[in-house]
Amino acid sequence: MPNTALVTGASSGIGREFARYHAEKGGDLIITARRAAELEALKSEIEADHDVKVQTIALDLGSPEGAQELYDQTKGQEISILINNAGFGGHGAFTDRELATDLAMIDLNVKALVTLTHLVARDMAKRGSGKILNVSSTASYMPGPLQATYFATKAFVSSFSQALAGELKEKGITVTALEPGYVETEFAARADLDGTDLTKSGATPRSVAKYGYDAMRRGELRAINDGRLRFMLNWIVPWLPRWTVLKMVRRMQEKSV
């Protein structure tokens, strides 16, 4: 499978659009998520529309052995692009939330991403080429009252991605962190964010996937799809007092209904 991309969280949202866009470029795919039916439907659609091959792997990437199991099922295939898209968030005060849910969030958003990246990047390094795209968030730029764990996981993803980019550049591998704002996907409903200011307007999954994929191809370090957010996060938010930032973020995440 030449020019093969491995896309996690591919059954819906941005992940599904990553898969479609890569196929449009003529690349083969390995797509994974928990929902087998959705993966098979996407495989049928893509293979009908494009002259590419699609392999589906249905599993729980956040389980203790999920990343290793995924890697084991792809052994022997040359993965040119790794897109770590799988992840979830959750609304509410940290002490009111179930600890098990936040630990599961860390397992998927951080531990699985680190494990899969380590396994795949070693193979890329041996070949001397490869591209990695880690889906982070604008949440990585600030702490997030009422989504404390989620924001922290994305800060990790962005920091980790940049450090890897510095390490792997000499081995012919680029690493990009895609940092979108709110995107119109299933994420908001699953994270219980409906009714907050965060969800008043957002980008389409297609536009975000295309922006991130193209940034990855160019080898960019960080990619924010929204120009207004890019300006605010790089030139305004860093100069604001921390308490001001905390209050601002909390207001955006408080329920209006």
Rank of each mutant, 00 (worst) to 15 (best):
S140I: 01
N3H: 14
R20L: 15
H91A: 09
N3W: 08
E254H: 00
A121M: 05
A10S: 03
D197F: 08
D214H: 12
D28P: 03
S11A: 06
V114M: 13
L113H: 09
A163I: 03
D123S: 06
L42A: 03
D194L: 13
E65R: 14
L42M: 04
E45D: 12
W239S: 13
G13M: 01
E170W: 10
I224T: 12
D60N: 13
A112G: 03
D28F: 08
S140K: 04
S161C: 03
E167N: 08
L221F: 11
L70E: 07
Y21L: 15
S256F: 06
L198Q: 08
L168F: 13
A139F: 08
L99W: 14
I106C: 10
S129C: 10
A104T: 06
K111F: 07
M1G: 13
V114C: 08
I79T: 05
L29M: 08
A67T: 05
S207A: 15
P241Q: 10
I30Y: 02
F160E: 04
R242L: 14
M232T: 09
E69M: 13
F156I: 00
E167Q: 11
I31H: 00
E98R: 14
R35C: 07
E40S: 10
L61H: 03
Q77N: 12
L246Y: 01
G166N: 10
W243P: 07
R218E: 15
T244D: 05
F94S: 11
S158N: 12
I132Y: 03
Q77L: 15
N3M: 11
G76V: 05
T8H: 00
D107V: 03
G195H: 04
L240M: 14
S44E: 15
G26V: 06
R206Y: 14
I31T: 01
D107K: 12
G26F: 07
V120F: 00
L146G: 09
L233Y: 15
R206D: 12
K43I: 02
V135Q: 02
K75F: 07
A100P: 05
M252S: 10
M216S: 07
F187Q: 02
A155N: 10
V52K: 05
R20C: 08
A165I: 01
Q147H: 11
E220D: 14
S256E: 13
A93K: 15
S158T: 14
T138C: 13
G26L: 07
V208H: 07
A19I: 03
Q253G: 10
Q55S: 14
G87W: 04
Q253K: 06
A152R: 04
T174F: 05
F187E: 00
Y21W: 09
T4V: 12
A93L: 14
L108K: 00
T176F: 01
A209F: 04
D197T: 02
N225D: 15
T101H: 12
